[in-house]
Write a protein that binds this DNA or RNA. Sequence first.
DNA 1: CTCAATATTGTCAGATCGACAATTACTGAC
DNA 2: GTCAGTAATTGTCGATCTGACAATATTGAG
Lengths: 225, 225
Amino acid sequence: MMSVAVDLAVFTVRDDAFAILMIERGQEPFRGRLALPGGFVEADENLDQAAARELHEETGLDAADLHLEQLRAYGDPDRDPRPTRVVSICYLALMPDLPLPTAGGDARAARWMAVDDVLGGPAEIAFDHRRIIGDAVERARGMLEHSTVGTAFCADQFAISDLRRVYEIVWGRRLDPGNFSRKVTGVDGFLVPTGEFSRDGGRPAALYRRGPATTLHPPLLRSTR
Amino acid sequence: MMSVAVDLAVFTVRDDAFAILMIERGQEPFRGRLALPGGFVEADENLDQAAARELHEETGLDAADLHLEQLRAYGDPDRDPRPTRVVSICYLALMPDLPLPTAGGDARAARWMAVDDVLGGPAEIAFDHRRIIGDAVERARGMLEHSTVGTAFCADQFAISDLRRVYEIVWGRRLDPGNFSRKVTGVDGFLVPTGEFSRDGGRPAALYRRGPATTLHPPLLRSTR
DNA sequence: CTCAATATTGTCAGATCGACAATTACTGAC
DNA sequence: GTCAGTAATTGTCGATCTGACAATATTGAG
């Protein structure tokens, strides 16, 4: 008999940084430490529902407004110091930079932190969450290559340069604006033009909405071949 | 409180077919139905260890001899009809076509079945294992594109044509021998020549062993661009 | 109007792709 | 031995894709 929990690695792109939603734990174990939001799976819900519920409790957001998918399970016997063993199913969520309606509503302070600060900084992270975050970051970076989920970081309507900035920030790598534009517009079903244009700074950019495609053919590769 | 199990989707390539190891259940629920091998996680082992232990119990094989990695967790409340809820962590194993030392030793008949027969046939599959198998097959097919795990289906020493046949059978698609050979030998660290040659039929083929590389740069894509 | 800023399109040489032809190196039949 | 058969490997070629970077287009600010 074990407890089964879901943990959430919720990512966004804000202030020119790849950011993850972290909470400060309000009780033992690891009181005061940074951790991923999450909680126990209840008797009548499946894993996806548990993840969506926890997401809503922590951020006030609805799962329909973002991309949510399972990352993997973590179940080392000593990953949680409490007497009952806890196996955690971790979920990955990608969302645009929205205000968090109920941030801290759960008596736990939730805040966005730059991924580089979390992984590279001195902060002590609760449980095995540092490892989970590392896995989640790598998964997110890889997904941008082969799937269309990068648009999940953008608002409902966005310019190609917005999407390019997402890729640049998540990958930590500059991309050529012209080549990027040609590539993403060349993928069938990736971007649907809305007919509207942005108006800020230079030449107006055509605005797009997410298209129906889920996989990128051909992929956008980050590696130098 | 829930039970946590591991299930195994063990694949190989044999008799010109992409095959999966299935057992016939010896007890209720689903007695007599086909199912994936698996069992419950014990108190003192982590998930990877549980998967390796179950693999050994079902096939007599050691996890060191094959590729074993976690697929994902399945946890719908009604996926197991027994009163205690069971969350299952499914593992994917890829192995060469070896004889199974203890097949059926666990009082359950274990046998290789063609993936197409399992998914396309009329056989009733226990639990949600049909869905799991579908996910596992898709994951395995995708992994061949970007990782070097295809060699896990080959014997210790193998010719490029052996590896090509693996790709052809798993993907269900013919590949050009010349182009395939050039591509795989061009990936740094994928294949290490042994200096030996095969002797059967036509011109002898150089034999190789798995190299240290784990990811394929550039990837081998199955889609028609 | 001129300029700075940004979007988009154009260009071009090098890499890669798939299709398929040519060459190489064996085995087995005769 | 010679020859046909089989399969590995290398060669070729046009189409496509890539990254680098130049050129053009369209706006707002001054």
